[in-house]
């Protein structure tokens, strides 16, 4: 047996990639530069695709390959390219001011991770399975952490573009949870969520452009001026 065929090796690789995914999420919280944020998101999605691939490889589950390929295509390549073009078109490069300052947000993210662990712990012990079937099960806390931190980022950011990014990373968390718990939802549901998010991202992108045209700013808090 070659060493990469050993499920233990696969487990290590998945664990490692999951940790990197989490680190990238926190990097996104800490980074002010939009372009870096988008790239971090791209790498994160790429790693997710890799995790899905690994699980698919060891379990021989074909439909996860499809989900992984879709993730790679849309979230790791297409969306980042679109967002990057959007950013260069509206000529902003920096998230000026999040509501909570960076060190504190980073530390809050740390706490959210801890919370995710507490929430996931009972689920994890219940679902402990031996061998290949248990592969990737331990990424559940990471998935929940991605979700929570993504949510926090949506609350914390002012710019619509960064909110889109936060939403996307939140969805990454859902995806990870899905593959870690059930080896993927039924393909059709997966596709549904996928295109839902994609379309949402597109609409938001257009909206962002419009908001800027109208208000000369992307600050979402200014939308409150719309009410009569």
């Amino acid at each position: 047996m070659l060493f990469w065929q050993d499920p233990q090796f696969g487990d290590r690789m998945i664990t490692l990639m999951a940790a990197l995914v989490l680190v990238l999420q926190i990097t996104m919280v800490a980074q002010r530069w939009l372009v870096t944020n988008i790239r971090a998101f791209a790498i994160q999605s790429f790693l997710l695709a890799c995790i899905a691939n690994t699980i698919a490889y060891y379990n021989g589950a074909t439909h996860i390959y499809i989900a992984a390929a879709l993730t790679l295509m849309f979230k790791a390549i297409l969306l980042p390219v679109i967002l990057q073009r959007l950013v260069s078109r509206i000529e902003i490069r920096q998230e000026i001011e999040p509501f909570v300052n960076v060190p504190l947000s980073v530390i809050i993210s740390g706490f959210l991770t801890l919370l995710a662990y507490v929430v996931a712990e009972p689920l994890q012990t219940q679902a402990a399975l031996p061998g290949v079937a248990g592969l990737g099960r331990n990424t559940l806390p990471v998935a929940i952490a991605l979700f929570l931190i993504g949510f926090f980022m949506m609350i914390n950011r002012r710019k619509a573009v960064t909110q889109v990014l936060a939403l996307l990373s939140l969805e990454n968390g859902l995806f990870l949870a899905a593959i870690s718990l059930t080896y993927g939802m039924p393909l059709i549901v997966e596709l549904g969520i996928f295109f839902d998010v994609l379309v949402a991202a597109m609409i938001l992108a257009i909206l962002v452009y419009r908001i800027r045209e109208t208000f000369d700013s992307m600050d979402v808090s200014r939308l409150s001026r719309l009410k009569g």
Binding site: T15, A18, A19, L22, V23, I26, T27, A30, V102, P103, L104, V106, I107, S109, G110, T113, L114, Y117, N138, P141, V142
Partner: peptide
């Protein structure tokens, strides 16, 4: 702060995974 959270994550990882 990033370094601190990284090391906190390192600590959590010892039983997270």
């Amino acid at each position: 702060a990033v370094a601190f959270v990284l090391s906190a994550l390192a600590l959590i990882s010892t039983f997270l995974f």
